[in-house]
């Protein structure tokens, strides 16, 4: 079933997402590209998805790691308990 040339919209969306993270295989890319040829909605989803990725790349956005957040939570809980 993995090597089906024609895929569902759900599967196409999944592969389009993976492609944004560079994790889609050549076959996966080929199949969603073929799907997009006849499915306007999925084609639009791909366009929007690419746009979102470029927004994230240009948005200079950072976030704290899980460890940093855990430390913050601990300190906050300590302070709260001393109230």
């Amino acid at each position: 079933m993995k090597n089906k040339l024609f895929i569902s919209c759900e599967e196409a969306a999944h592969r389009i997402d993976k492609a944004q993270y560079g994790e889609a295989t050549f076959w996966e890319k080929l199949t969603f590209k073929i799907h997009n040829l006849y499915c306007k909605l999925c084609h639009l989803y791909e366009v929007k998805n690419k746009r979102l990725t470029s927004l994230f790349n240009s948005g200079d956005i950072r976030c704290l790691t899980r460890e940093q957040k855990s430390k913050m939570k601990e300190k906050l809980a300590d302070t709260a308990s001393n109230f």
């Binding site: 993270y21 240009s58 948005g59 200079d60 956005i61 950072r62 976030c63 790691t65 899980r66």
Partner: peptide, 29 residues
Amino acid sequence: NKELGLAIEICLEKLPIKQAEIFKQKTIL
């Protein structure tokens, strides 16, 4: 870009916490 970054953060804030966390780990980190 900074404004956009904050706009993205506001949108991320609207996601369920777990979903936002996983998304950030995958996309930003």
